[in-house]
Design a protein around this nucleic acid. Structure first.
Lengths: 329, 329
DNA sequence: CTGAAAGCGCTAACAA
DNA sequence: TTGTTAGCGCTTTCAG
């Protein structure tokens, strides 16, 4: 019994000859170790929980790939839970995962509330946040700087000579991908001496249709924006199509920049200039970080901020020269 | 001890007053039942395994959503395993899931080999295939008729008057989404008296780039096709862009029809006419079917074929009238 | 309706 | 190097 356990677990204290015999018997009988019993006895399940807002979102799916790749590299399986972006569900799923005795959890979500903190901090296993960050900075997390990224995207447009720069934001209830990117936009405007206008902001929901709707708002203005920053690639593509559907051209009439760099960014004409977020890496690093906690390894920085950059494609004009206008201030 | 178990599991044989007391104590102590111990004792883990070729593929992600929704409706959790389209990995993951004592498995994959059958048929829990089907028809499965769908798509093009209809296939090693759709294409051609030409076929891999490459092949021909059927929406969008990049127009110069109806089909100009496959439903029905097997319910049809249909959008000409040509035969 | 007792299949000391 | 012995935390008879 114990020897079989040793063989199955690769314990070296087994005489090679008996190991052979055990292995033969295992093969013979088609014996399959019971991971549940093992989990109960050893208190390790080699399973980690993953909470994801929407598995069908290209952004989160890519994070999930990063998580899964590293997890399988470390021989962990993943219990994947789609929270459908609902907070009560996030909490409930986290508790279920804890009941299932996962060795750790990677949590993806939008907003981290007090309730989240309560559940997370009382958990007996490590939890790391991927693609988000808790407001108090207590929890380990892996993300980019949404503020900087929003600032950079806007500045990129301003540097091309644009004075009338609009933004399609995400839901502002989302403190990072929604609010912080928006704040970065305002900062860039401010720094360039451009006045912020409410009519140049459309609150979207990251989806394609929001981009279409945003264009409807912007193009009904007397002073139409000449450049648009969308907080997601999907919305940016919606913006491009909205513009094209009106007979205008991108980037000749309007420059467009997106956010994320999902594959869609290359599957549109013109190809989308966008802020690239290392989605796969965010997932991978988060999972790697989790393995360290699960193995009680030392971790120096529990909050990791990965770099972003701008990938310039064809939806923004390449020439810096531009028929500037002065009315915009 | 036993009474607590009864309370936790909702067993009615408990006096309401003691139930109250137990519940209070649970709350008081912050007691969290251990699902692993429960699984060992009861031999049910309320967890199902899901094998998926690529979590980042919009097609499979949508299936996964269907699976997950129904699973959570029935209080199951999901261990999600990305096989990365590699057969050995599929087999290995299936075995791991079995070791983890999942109550059932939903399997998504391309080809079902002898080796698969061996593992599947010796498993002690039910396994259902989603988005595929085993060649022998022994295993429960949920899918569409790829042959019919390929036939319908091609016929749709032919009925618009096209004589030169090309196809971008999936990998022909994929017996269904690759081969069967292709066979349907050939059937429709044959039935319409059109001769099949090798040069009108491009073997793609379902990805966007394949569509681009296919156009390169097709447009180098003396007799260029006037209509193209792509076996996936991604490839179809690649085809559209390939055509547009050459200064031609869709559908004025070439009609294009895709396959799947992923969200991308609406996020392109012109919007893509496509064969709609009920992706979410395939996943949902597969999971529902699995629950029946797990509960030992009667199942009448273990192979279910869901309907497909063609959604006509702007990438195919709406008028049946067409400047036909006769050289094509 | 409740409690006692026997496992579920394994791991982890401990002894031998 | 191997076997023995306790559990892991629950469910499930079986008495009472």
């Amino acid at each position: 019994m114990a020897t079989v356990s040793r063989v199955v677990n690769g314990n070296p204290n087994v005489k090679p000859s008996t190991r052979k015999k055990v292995l033969a018997a295992i093969e013979q009988l088609g014996y399959r170790p019971n991971a549940v019993a093992r989990g109960l006895a050893s208190k390790r399940t080699t399973t980690v929980g993953v909470v994801i807002p929407d598995i069908a979102s290209p952004f989160f799916a890519e994070l999930a790939r990063g998580i899964d790749d590293i997890a399988s590299m470390y021989k962990y399986n993943i219990i994947l839970c789609d929270s459908d972006e609902r907070i009560e569900r996030e909490l409930h799923l986290t508790n279920t995962l804890l009941e299932k005795q996962v060795d750790g959890i990677v949590f993806m979500g939008r907003e981290i509330t007090e309730n989240h903190m309560q559940v997370f901090t009382t958990a007996s296993v490590p939890i790391v946040l991927a693609g988000t960050k808790d407001p108090t900075g207590q929890l380990p997390s892996v993300d980019i700087s949404h503020y900087e990224a929003g600032y950079d995207a806007t500045k990129h447009l301003i540097e091309k000579g644009h004075k009338r720069v609009a933004m399609v934001t995400g839901p502002l209830i989302d403190p990072l991908a929604g609010m912080r990117r928006f704040e970065g936009y305002k900062k860039a405007l401010d720094e360039a001496g451009l006045t912020f206008k409410d009519s140049y902001v459309y609150n979207g929901n990251f989806r394609y249709e929001s981009g279409l709707d945003a264009v409807e708002q912007f193009m009904s203005l007397v002073e139409q924006p000449t450049a648009i920053f969308a907080a997601s690639d999907e919305m940016a593509v919606g913006v491009i199509h909205g513009i094209q559907d009106r007979g205008l051209r991108v980037p000749e009439d309007v420059d467009v920049i997106g956010f994320d760099n999902i594959r869609l960014a290359e599957m549109v004409r013109p190809r989308l200039t966008t802020v690239v977020q290392p989605m796969y890496d965010i997932g991978a690093v988060a999972m790697r970080l989790l393995t360290k906690y699960m193995n009680n390894e030392k971790v120096e920085n529990h909050i990791v901020i990965l770099p972003h950059r701008i990938e310039e494609r064809q939806s923004t004009k390449s020439n810096a020269g531009f028929d500037g206008e002065k009315e915009a201030e």
